[in-house]
Design a protein around this nucleic acid. Sequence first.
DNA 1: CTGTTAGCGCATTCAC
DNA 2: GTGAATGCGCTAACAG
Lengths: 336, 336
Amino acid sequence: MTIYDIAKKAGVSASTVSRVINDKPGVGEATKERIRRLLEEYNYSPNEAARGLVTQSSKIVGILIEDIRIAHHTESAYIIEQEMTKRGYTCITLSTGITPEKKAEYIKILEQRRVEGAILIGSMFGTLEVEKSIKEHLADIPIVLVNGSLDLPNVRGILVAEKQGVEECVDLLVKRGRRNLAFAVDSITPSNNSKILGFKNGLEKHGLRNGERFVFYAADDDTAPEHTIERGRQATEEIIMKCPEVNGIIYSIDLLAVGGLQVCHEKGIAVPGQIAVIGIDNTLYGKICTPKLTTLDNKLVEVCQNASRILLEALEGKDTPHGMKIFTDIIQRESS
Amino acid sequence: MTIYDIAKKAGVSASTVSRVINDKPGVGEATKERIRRLLEEYNYSPNEAARGLVTQSSKIVGILIEDIRIAHHTESAYIIEQEMTKRGYTCITLSTGITPEKKAEYIKILEQRRVEGAILIGSMFGTLEVEKSIKEHLADIPIVLVNGSLDLPNVRGILVAEKQGVEECVDLLVKRGRRNLAFAVDSITPSNNSKILGFKNGLEKHGLRNGERFVFYAADDDTAPEHTIERGRQATEEIIMKCPEVNGIIYSIDLLAVGGLQVCHEKGIAVPGQIAVIGIDNTLYGKICTPKLTTLDNKLVEVCQNASRILLEALEGKDTPHGMKIFTDIIQRESS
DNA sequence: CTGTTAGCGCATTCAC
DNA sequence: GTGAATGCGCTAACAG
């Protein structure tokens, strides 16, 4: 069913049908009504690709994430998709995986689909490779980077004050009488680097020993949630073995902390009695595990709503903040 | 950058450029090389919308789910997206919400984008409203329904043997000496109805009392994970209050069971000592909670891989099974 | 081996 | 108020 088919049936030209479809003026009430009925009768649905070709606007936006199975990414993608759909855009949401090459590849996919804007979720999009790819393939459309920044004219960034957040976590642990602290990360990302920096700053502030020794890496290239728990377990075992004096651990994400709690439980280590534990991201996992997890809430909902808003404003040609910073909160539960 | 721009720079016609882009034969090695260099130099990227318009194939597939935040849906969407992307299709993944009207609306979006195929995840897509919408808007493309079925020529269904699965859960509980069983569901869906039927069949098989009284509904229209736990709590409190003799509960999804475990813990009810608990879906939540959850694995990965495969085969014109049934497994953990 | 022509479905001039 | 003509970017058929 094309507008020509409808036009023929209505005994008018395609332009007239097009006018009716797009609510453009200059069509007689009678013919308008007649065309509407036919549109309805034949379940006419405009071909957005053809429409986009002539209007030079696809009404598509791209959402790129490393792995949608990661709880905080799922939530982010959901929020953004809802907002954009509400405003008449269709989202192409893709999980890119962790390598820069794959990310570049997915950026090309967005280009081929002529997306009008994009939201990239995660600090790993704030890297040189991605910057290059954006310059080459998406140089002229508004892009919002969630939890990262890139120095390009068309890229806006929303930053989460994770460094300060982690510093406050250290404060909390110290206040709880913990002075032998460790920090566990599962991957090396700009975001995690900020967190580590916050950890070290926190230690320094309280006159604790140089934190270098107390950062544990359990990196892997598998981002599946199951494996994240496993890595949390490994990191925790290493911490306990190498630094038995540790009495407070901060994990770069909740799921790592969950693995940590499991290990502590199995080894008969009381949490928070013997070791206090804090996670990051405020995911559902933290409410489910035992003991319930204290976690750094990085305000995902707020961040994503702002990301959508900024992108929409940019798409509508309004001028909108080029950067933005969101502050974290600590959700205190049983583990610390 | 269009093929005309490239053609001009190369001193050839657009067709020749098109041939090079699509690896079609009939272009001299020399010109081919020259064009390739220009394509590279200008980062040319074909406009898929224009291409799709002439080839009558968008290379887009739609994935519809009620709510991507629900753990087993996240995983499903991920698997399918990976498979389809690998094969050169771009996925439009959308969370429709629970109402039939919304679902119909999203089916229209897929139509407007001229998707070549679609995968609908969840039994709620196996309803009359959706059937009508498919007949009106997506009548001519292959559709795979995950965990549901619809009697339409273009719709293939993958069914999970949930009824039998739940019956086996009852068997397990009976074997553990539990004869006062309850079943809690959080929504009324075809899938949940099968589960309920399986529950009743199980009771009957073991000569237990009519199960009607022992099915508890905690329905709500909010599918956010947080609320699901809350509903699990409510259902459990109701069960304990109304039927204090209950010593085994099956929950229609893991997250409800998690809420149940919380309530039991708070009330000092031993699990599985006093009440044995079983969830459904084999999600990560079940590995995290305490005690670890026994759960009915409905073989999501297998189901989704088959869904992708069937859709791909249908898209390639191969004949592929119209229906398929997958059998469940019980994962025994600490809660039963 | 390569260019010309036509048309995919649509919106947008410009005539009438 | 309405229609004819044009072109968005591309591929495909045909001609040379």
